[in-house]
């Protein structure tokens, strides 16, 4: 990880110095453990604030929307796929970007780490290749990174960036994942009323803060349907009907676009596994159209193309 940090700094410095880009978007080390802050560097001398470790979970693609300058940006596998999606949805132009790809070994699930140390106060986390060490006032424990990856990283088959101008490190072989959609299958197997109970229970703690939506690079609408006030489609209280409406509709808006980057789930202050909604749609889009979002700049997403050989009668 240290090597990535050094390489990132060097690369950003060079890009800013030779004016390939006006700004560079990456992360800086956070002020609390297991947290890094997205940062915009416009001065080559400040490139040394850039930092990289397995807690860079917020998707940087968010910060590209409608920018007009030339931007250098770090991109892991999923982030690069969101950038591709952004480009084909006209939120940014390819030639404005200098994409610095990062073959990603996965992000660590900070909640799982907290559980592993029995919610004791963590003061420092240091990584060492495949393991990481967690320190607190009266403990010091080392864990295997593989066991503590975010759920989306465990099943990720696109760890290498798909679109880039330069890669840091060496791309590696993608992992084989069996039964990637076991969670979705499990819910699918439930009776309708059980499904409803499952999702109702799942979102029961939701405070409608919209961190999940705002952390998602797909959610760039200038006015989200939940914020529309004339007419107002969705109520503003925490009535479960309104909350469920928000979640289900948002998920549908992500169909065929979601890269399962996990930013939404990571951002939620009360730990709601919101990917349970989007993953079902990801699976459907894959089963129906053999489509995974953001893999190519040359293909339109299935939900915005017409194909004479569509499997549905009504559209033919």
């Amino acid at each position: 990880m240290v090597t990535y940090t050094d390489e990132i700094r060097k690369t950003a410095k060079k890009l800013l110095e030779d004016k390939t880009v006006d700004v560079f978007i990456g992360y800086k080390k956070g002020t609390v453990p297991m947290m890094n802050e997205p940062v915009l560097v416009s001065d080559a001398d400040k490139a040394d604030t850039l930092y990289w470790d397995s807690f860079c979970g917020l998707n940087l693609c968010n910060y590209l929307t409608k920018r007009t300058d030339r931007i250098g940006i770090l991109a892991t596998g999923c982030n690069s796929r969101n950038i591709v999606t952004h480009i084909i949805e006209n939120q940014i132009k390819r030639d404005q970007l200098y994409i610095v790809g990062i073959p990603c070994t996965g992000m660590i699930d900070h909640r799982a780490v907290l559980r592993a140390v029995k919610e004791r106060e963590i003061l420092e986390v240091t990584e060492n290749g495949d393991s990481f060490t967690v320190k607190g006032n009266d403990f010091n424990e080392t864990f295997d990174k593989k066991e503590y990856l975010q759920a989306n990283c465990k099943t990720c088959t696109h760890r290498n960036p798909v679109e880039y101008d330069e890669v840091i490190g060496t791309p590696f072989e993608e992992q084989e994942v069996s039964e990637a959609y076991r969670d979705v299958e499990k819910i699918k197997g439930m009776a309708s009323d059980k499904k409803w109970d499952f999702f109702t229970q799942m979102i029961s703690n939701c405070i409608r803060c919209y961190a999940c939506r705002n952390a998602c690079p797909l959610c760039y609408c200038p006015t989200c349907f939940v914020d529309e006030s004339g007419p107002q489609w969705v109520g503003k209280s925490i009535d479960p009907t309104d909350t469920m409406t928000f979640h289900i509709l948002r998920a549908y808006h992500c169909a065929g676009r979601c890269t399962d980057c996990g930013a939404c789930e990571r951002a939620c202050p009360v730990g709601i596994p919101v990917r349970q909604f989007t993953r079902k749609l990801n699976k459907d889009v894959f089963d129906l159209f053999k489509w995974e979002a953001g893999l190519s700049l040359d293909e339109r997403p299935p939900l915005d193309v017409y194909r004479p050989d569509d499997y549905n009668d009504f559209i033919r």
């Binding site: 803060c209 961190a211 202050p269």
Partner: peptide
């Protein structure tokens, strides 16, 4: 600069 990374969610104010 302070605001760059903010995603304008309600986490800080609601908590």
């Amino acid at each position: 600069e302070v605001a760059f990374s903010c995603i304008n969610c309600g986490t800080c104010t609601y908590l």
